[in-house]
């Protein structure tokens, strides 16, 4: 008998696997690539920047090369008060844009048309930076406005005129680096979750966001809309420093070390690190009645990783 070649088997294997790839990769990706973005997708994408995990501009996940979200009540160019508060996404020169701003066909034809005609988004360049807004046309189509081109708002002037600055883009990197998403999902489910955790996302809500980090193993509340449930920066600060201060039964780790990571002033970082080391002892002394007051929870420095993470969580509306 001849040595068996398994020709038919090999061909069948190729056909079976090829068909499977066709049905599970090719068809779904065609379908999902045609999904039209929602207004929320534009907001998330502009808030978080190109990529929240490992990337060329940020290989060590320090939150580099990310946009800053600002709230404006006056026009950065003229200084005139605005009719209502405006949220703007500031890309300093050199900050990479999210991929739908660079590659066409990722947001849906109507949105891209409106963004090009009304919003002039194609005039923005990464080298010069830009300030973006999310607007709606009269018929309700959301679009991206490049305010640097349409209104002359430069990134520097916009940051200077801002009422509030949120490092939400850098904070989302912290959310991924610190593994928050191993317990806190970012996906209210379509069953009954919407009553507790808010509106479940719909099909166009994620165009431009990467990675999506829905989370798979929910050991803690969903955070997709947490900023709407709890917008207190003080509560968040206490909770990140030691969750047991505000929720005695919490099993969340303490993130007190984020108070000094990312801080550029080394002396200040060192000082905070030493204070945090003492904190436990002082707190236990307070618990035993040997101190009148518990030790302070320090304010996170403006460039600390804790501040970025708190900004991200507060902007999850």
């Amino acid at each position: 008998m001849a040595f068996r070649q398994y020709r038919i088997g090999s061909i069948m294997f190729g056909v079976a696997l090829g068909t499977s790839m066709m049905v599970t990769i090719f068809f779904p990706s065609i379908d999902m690539s045609k999904v039209e973005a929602t207004k929320y997708a534009l907001q998330y994408m502009l808030m978080y920047g190109r990529e929240s995990a490992f990337a060329y501009e940020d290989p060590f996940l320090e939150g580099k090369g990310k946009p800053i979200t600002v709230v404006l009540s006056k026009d950065p160019k003229t200084g005139q008060p605005l009719a209502e508060k405006v949220t703007a996404y500031v890309y300093k020169p050199g900050t990479p844009f999210p991929s739908p701003l660079v590659h066409e066909g990722k947001l849906g034809d109507k949105i891209e048309q409106a963004s090009a005609d009304l919003g002039k988004y194609k005039q923005a360049t990464e080298a010069q930076g830009a300030v973006f807004l999310v607007r709606e046309t009269k018929d309700g189509t959301p679009y991206i406005e490049n305010a640097t081109a349409t209104r002359g708002w430069t990134p520097e002037a916009t940051l200077a005129a801002a009422d509030q600055q949120f490092y939400a883009g850098a904070g989302r990197t912290m959310f991924i680096r610190e593994g928050c998403w191993w317990c806190h999902t970012l996906l209210p489910e379509q069953t009954k979750d919407w009553q507790t955790f808010g509106r479940p996302p719909v099909i166009g809500d994620f165009n431009g966001t990467s990675p999506t980090t829905f989370g798979s193993d929910r050991k803690a509340p969903d955070l997709f809309h947490v900023g709407s449930r709890n917008s207190s920066r003080e509560w968040m600060t206490l909770h990140f420093f030691n969750p047991r201060l505000v929720q005695p039964h919490s099993i969340m780790p303490r993130y007190d070390y984020l108070w000094y990571t990312g801080v550029k002033d080394k002396a200040k970082a060192k000082q905070l690190q030493e204070y945090i080391k003492r904190w436990d002892k002082e707190y236990l002394a307070y618990a035993r009645g040997e101190r009148v007051y518990p030790p302070e929870v320090p304010e996170p420095p403006a460039d600390s990783d804790a501040r970025k993470l708190i900004d991200f969580v507060l902007t999850l509306k």
Partner: peptide, 20 residues
């Protein structure tokens, strides 16, 4: 090789989630 395409080609949104 296919499963890691989202990183190599910077895929976003549902494509990224589904490929993951």
């Amino acid at each position: 090789l296919i499963g890691n395409l989202p990183e190599w080609f910077h895929l976003t949104g549902l494509n990224e989630a589904y490929m993951t």
